[in-house]
Amino acid sequence: MSDIVIIPTDGSEYADNAADVGFDLARKSGATVHALSVGDTSMTHRSSIGAGPGKTSEEVTEIAAEWAEELAEAARSAGLDAEAVVRTGIPAEEIADYAAETDASMVVMGTAGRSGFERRIVGSTTDKVVSTAPVPVVTVRPDGAVDAA
């Protein structure tokens, strides 16, 4: 197992709250933070019927890159080694795959994010990562409470 703490971000306040917990865990363990954001390809299929216009794969990846770099910069400002990592695909799958590829120590992520409508329809990204990631997943609730799965 490597000394990597993966902190996924979707640019939401929930991801920022989880990042604070992840930074603390990385600091205590001497780990490098991998600020991971996924250009969500499901966003490229949305229509104007109830969800707004779809975005191109390039657009969602550019947005993800901004989120990842912002989080990595926050980690560096907190005195941590950090990398911004961008993937494109289905967020839960990409997060779990990245955890396996890097043999990370853990994933730290929020239990709520940008996808309220999708959460009701297909389940949350966090739920899917908890059930598929090959490493421990620390979840941070919107109220700041921490769970480990």
Rank of each mutant, 00 (worst) to 15 (best):
M1V: 07
M1H: 12
S2P: 00
D3Y: 02
I7R: 11
I7N: 07
I7C: 12
T9P: 07
G11Y: 13
G11L: 08
S12L: 10
E13W: 03
A15H: 12
A15G: 14
D16A: 14
N17L: 14
A19N: 11
D20H: 15
D20Y: 14
D20Q: 09
G22H: 11
K28D: 14
K28Y: 14
S29M: 06
G30W: 13
G30D: 13
G30S: 13
A31Q: 05
T32I: 07
A35S: 11
A35Y: 02
A35R: 03
L36M: 04
G39E: 00
G39Q: 03
G39C: 06
G39V: 10
D40A: 03
T41C: 07
S42A: 11
S42G: 08
H45G: 09
H45R: 14
S47Q: 06
I49D: 12
G52P: 02
P53G: 11
T56A: 06
E59M: 04
E59V: 01
V60L: 09
V60P: 01
T61D: 02
E62I: 05
A64I: 11
A64W: 04
E66W: 09
A68K: 05
E69F: 05
A74Y: 06
A75H: 01
S77L: 08
A78S: 05
G79F: 13
A82D: 03
A84T: 02
V85F: 00
V86H: 01
R87S: 03
R87A: 03
T88Y: 02
P91N: 03
P91V: 01
A92W: 14
E94K: 01
I95S: 04
I95N: 05
A96I: 05
Y98C: 01
A100N: 13
E101L: 10
T102Q: 13
D103M: 00
S105C: 03
V107M: 04
V108S: 02
V108I: 02
M109V: 02
M109K: 13
A112W: 02
G116F: 11
G116M: 07
G116T: 07
R119M: 10
R120N: 08
I121S: 11
V122W: 11
G123E: 10
S124G: 13
S124R: 04
T125I: 15
D127F: 12
D127K: 05
K128G: 05
V130C: 08
V130L: 13
V130F: 12
A133Q: 10
A133E: 15
P134Y: 08
V137I: 07
V137D: 10
R141I: 05
P142T: 05
P142G: 10
D143T: 06
A145R: 15
A148Y: 10
A148F: 13
